[in-house]
Design a protein around this nucleic acid. Structure first.
Lengths: 367, 367
DNA sequence: TTGAAAGCGCTAACAA
DNA sequence: TTGTTAGCGCTTTCAA
């Protein structure tokens, strides 16, 4: 009577299908489908019989057959650089939450920042016919990459899906994408202003891959703020490279050893800031007494550093959630004005403990 | 000639299928399938024609139709508590790497520690017919949960898939699962030994959900080490609760304020250790001068704390990779002894800076 | 309220 | 080397 017994009875292992259930319940498979989906009236007695058969047989519907017949996959795809980087993992968490709240499964893949791999992954998601494919994080402004991306956007639109660019700039007006972004340049402008207001003039800009859209925008905001106050940005005070903690640590160490005469550091993201902080602490540089430090993104760890990091808050999890909401909202452009396919989430300066007024004389190595 | 033009020509949007490609290339769809899969010889000229048609039409194979016809999904499923917790995200990263190295996509879902939800997610993965479903992290020793899990394992085995328990204890000898684990109890024993060897006697055990297998094993190792030296473990020096940073912070704070007269803390994992460290630092407790601290897992952040944390290294990413390898290795038990369905990865004590000999008189609040 | 039957888009014998 | 032909397991008209 139990599942196990029945299985044993069956003998040769044969995947249980809907018609097995139908046979056992003495109905047609169409009826089984109806009780499973609950979208058509079925007599209570029939329903019970079917459910009992399902239970007895340990039947689990085949999602692929279902997808093929109904062309509804109940899944979303998401592509990130790296699954352990908090920037991405918080966004993934948001996506997963919203997906699962709407009964969808989440296919996630890591591109490791490789453009070709990213395109390849999108193609695989297209194969999966996911309801949306969400590409996260900055991209490089390569015309070829944009073109390929735009092509994918069209293909996806063609199959009733949506390409969402989350935290990544548009790939062209023509491409049918939706966008969830935030004002990178503005946020950078704001933190820089904050530093300037405290009296800082020689500020080091540290980190971020050269050419990555996110880097470009943050650096631009930094530059604009400096220039709007008539301050120069000497080339030796702009050190780009990467977004990781290790980069922050190494680069900051080298720079400090070169006696840069700076009073503040603008790290391109919080991870870089954390690394830079390590390097400073290791050299006896006090933050913020000797040198002030700001980051970007406000990943939760930032408030757990010593000192707590002043940074720009970006609602990562929300961005993830909004990405799937936006993708799923069928803005029927066929009828009149379509709802905007773009969401710009708010960003704000979070003042904590890593910024103070500059010292009279900048910190110098060799105590 | 271009993709776009052709699409425009088609008129009403109709998903491009294999027979569209076949027609355009003037061959049968079987031939298209052959060039796509490259598993049968196809004349070069034919191959070229087909590829051109694919290109022209912007054809992307439907993975569901493929899965249905071939019963091969090229996907693996993974279920974790929380995607942003480094313990899990490193394992997910390992799984994703290995999956994608073998041409598979990765379906990931978060259970938020909810047992029912976990079972539900497994069922959804079964629906997807993933090549493996990997369940990560400690479980509660609930007979009902074990039974349900064992049932799923059987179902999965029945469809040629595998349930992998990664960092989670067996659900019974009978259940056809594979296991990737590590010696939780032994690791806990080892760090505790280390603390004892330094001279510590009053050691606080902090964190870990009560009853969660991982917690249980770590606490057991702690107890065994203490007892093997004839030391008591007073009930007020065992504070369980959760695995998060916040718990570590709050609980440690309260305990310190109660003047516990301890010389060391064994945090159930690194996150708890990090939180406890914050609480200590905030109260002017110096680690390790006043109180020593150890953690568990060796998440990368641990070596970035101040002081760097002494902890037990667990190869999280490897565990993820091994989980999919193990699941995919078709150990044909039909023919003789099957390879062991269990991998126990090595664990080791990592001595860093957070442990020292105890002070003559234990730290007490109120400076 | 239920059943019959025609696909969904692809793979895999089996023939040719 | 290629085509024909059955399905894979489900949904969804269309009838009854």
């Amino acid at each position: 009577m139990t599942t196990q017994d029945d299985r044993a009875t069956v003998g040769a292992m044969h995947t249980v299908t809907m018609s097995d259930v139908a046979e056992r319940a003495g109905v047609s498979s169409a009826t089984v489908s109806r009780v499973l989906n609950g979208n058509y009236p079925v007599a209570q007695a029939t329903r019970d019989a079917v459910n009992r058969a399902i239970e007895d047989l340990g039947y689990t519907a085949n999602a692929h057959a279902r997808a093929l017949a109904s062309s509804a996959t109940h899944s979303v795809g998401i592509i990130v650089n790296d699954l352990v980087d908090p920037f991405f993992s918080y966004i993934v968490r948001g996506v997963e939450q919203e997906a699962s709240a709407t009964g969808r499964l989440c296919i996630v893949a890591a591109s490791q920042g490789d453009v070709d791999r990213e395109i390849d992954l999108i193609d695989r998601m297209i194969s999966q016919r996911t309801d949306a494919v969400i590409v996260v994080g900055g991209g490089y402004d390569d015309p070829r990459a944009r073109r390929r991306m735009a092509e994918r956007a069209r293909t996806l639109a063609g199959i009733g899906s949506t390409l969402v660019l989350c935290g990544r700039p548009s790939v062209g007006e023509q491409a049918p994408t939706k966008i969830v972004g935030y004002d990178n340049e503005g946020g950078a402008f704001a933190v820089t202003q904050h530093l300037i207001a405290q009296g800082h003039r020689r500020i080091l800009y540290l980190g971020g891959p050269i050419g990555l859209s996110t880097s470009v925008a943050r650096l631009a905001g930094f530059r604009r703020a400096m220039q709007s106050h008539g301050f120069e940005v000497p080339p030796d005070l702009v050190h780009q490279g990467a977004f990781g903690r290790r980069f922050g640590h190494t680069a900051m160490g080298e720079i400090l050893d070169g006696n840069p005469q700076i009073t503040a550091v603008f790290a391109a993201n919080d991870l870089v800031a954390a690394g830079a902080l390590d390097a400073m602490t290791a050299r006896g540089v006090r933050v913020p007494e000797d040198i002030s430090l700001v980051g970007y993104d406000d990943i939760p760890q930032s408030s757990e550093l010593t000192p707590k990091l002043t940074t720009v808050h970006v609602p990562l999890e929300d961005m993830g959630r909004e990405s799937v909401r936006l993708a799923l909202s069928r803005t029927d452009d066929a009828f009149g004005r379509h709802a905007d396919g773009e969401i710009i989430v708010g960003t704000r300066l979070v003042e904590r403990e890593s910024v103070a007024a500059p010292r009279a004389t900048p910190w110098a190595p060799g105590r």
